[in-house]
């Protein structure tokens, strides 16, 4: 995507063309995601009705009663008609009613999204900053023991399934030591004030640690290799020849290495919405990720479609953000009036 970004902003004339192409791609992605989203549930066995009205009842119903009930909960009509309705709903952001919660999908999403952001945003910032620091340090010390230890350590973390790490953290810090609550996002009842805020923070610790630790790896490796790349560049030799100290030279390299890291980070902003499915499930955290899982299990089509749409939009928003803000960090792709006579 880095390359794509550069291309997008590099040339003068094909810019519009590129932007148009990009836009077309986004539209296509949304369309494909929507269609998949609509088609998948309907291809598979499963009974949305039982979840809408209760399993026991759905089983006891006669076909006529079923048909009536389907109509009542809005699952009637031909596939094509449902698809049309679905697309129209998606475009007008009218996502319908969740059959599981009996509420507008948008409301359910709005309830859940903040919780996901609360754990994913800190994790993202933490893991990126820790990993950038470690990655730069490792690259600077390439080939030394500390580089190897760091590398091995980070690769080990990266090898851990997120849910497993979460489980171990729960077992050790939640159950054994009893330091942190292991369930949910907030205390059972909101009493408000500081104690509430503290309780919420306590519940953030383990999920945030889990996500931070497991996502450390990709940032670390990316930083390390980007850093190695820039350390080998000619400007680093110049920097040394200028008599710059270690810290300054490191910054020279890191400032350049940050470019791909930045792109990676902006693009993973979509994780803010979708990222933590498994971890949220492990910690029973009421975020969008666990919502997706629940809605899928419950065959709550409207909700599932809403979540999926939200996630797809987030992915695209992340890409868009990466495209739009990349020039801020890399002057080479900034569009500005050429300096006269710069030949």
């Amino acid at each position: 995507m880095n390359n794509g970004t550069r291309r997008l902003f590099a040339g003068g004339r094909p810019l519009l063309l590129r932007a148009g192409r990009k836009l077309a791609q986004y539209v296509l992605v949304i369309f494909v995601a929507l269609t998949l989203n609509f088609a998948l549930p309907r291809l598979a066995p499963g009974d949305s009705l039982s979840f809408a009205i209760g399993e026991a009842l759905a089983q006891e119903m006669t076909p006529e009663q079923r048909a009536q009930a389907m109509k009542e909960v809005g699952l009637d009509g031909s596939l094509l008609a449902q698809y049309g309705k679905f697309l129209k709903g998606a475009l007008t952001l009218d996502l319908g009613h969740s059959t599981k919660f009996g509420e507008p999908v948008a409301e359910v999403l709005a309830d859940r999204l903040p919780w996901t952001l609360r754990i994913v945003l800190p994790s993202l910032i933490l893991s990126a900053s820790i990993a950038v620091g470690l990655g730069a340090y490792a690259a600077w010390n390439r080939g030394r023991k500390r580089d190897l230890f760091l590398l091995a350590g980070v690769l080990t973390l990266e090898s851990m399934p997120g849910f497993w790490l979460g489980m171990i953290l729960i077992a050790v810090f939640g159950v054994k030591l009893g330091w942190f609550p292991t369930y949910g996002a907030a205390p059972l009842f909101s009493t408000g004030g500081w104690s509430y805020a503290v309780a919420v923070m306590q519940r953030m610790v383990l999920p945030v640690s889990t996500i931070t630790l497991v996502s450390l790896g990709s940032y670390f490796l990316l930083t390390r290799s980007a850093m190695l790349d820039s350390l080998g560049q000619d400007y680093m030799m110049m920097a040394e020849a200028k008599g710059l100290g270690t810290r300054k030279r490191m910054w020279h390299a890191l400032r350049n290495a940050l470019l791909p890291v930045y792109t990676h980070m902006t693009m993973s902003l979509s994780l803010l919405v979708s990222g933590a499915v498994v971890v949220e499930t492990v910690f029973s955290y009421p975020g969008v990720g666990s919502l997706l899982y629940e809605s899928v299990l419950a065959r709550d089509y409207p909700l599932m479609q809403g979540v999926f749409l939200l996630i797809t939009l987030a992915v695209i928003a992340g890409n868009l953000l990466a495209d739009l803000t990349y020039p801020l960090v890399d002057p080479r792709v900034r569009i500005r009036k050429p300096l006269e006579g710069s030949r």
Binding site: P114, R118, L121, P122, A186, S190, G192, A197, V200
Partner: peptide, 21 residues
């Protein structure tokens, strides 16, 4: 809906999403 609190976790401290009984 503590939308703002999304952006800065710290704001959580102030607002959170308390709903007093």
């Amino acid at each position: 809906k503590g939308w703002i609190s999304i952006v800065l976790v710290l704001i959580l401290l102030a607002t959170g999403c308390s709903s007093n009984g």
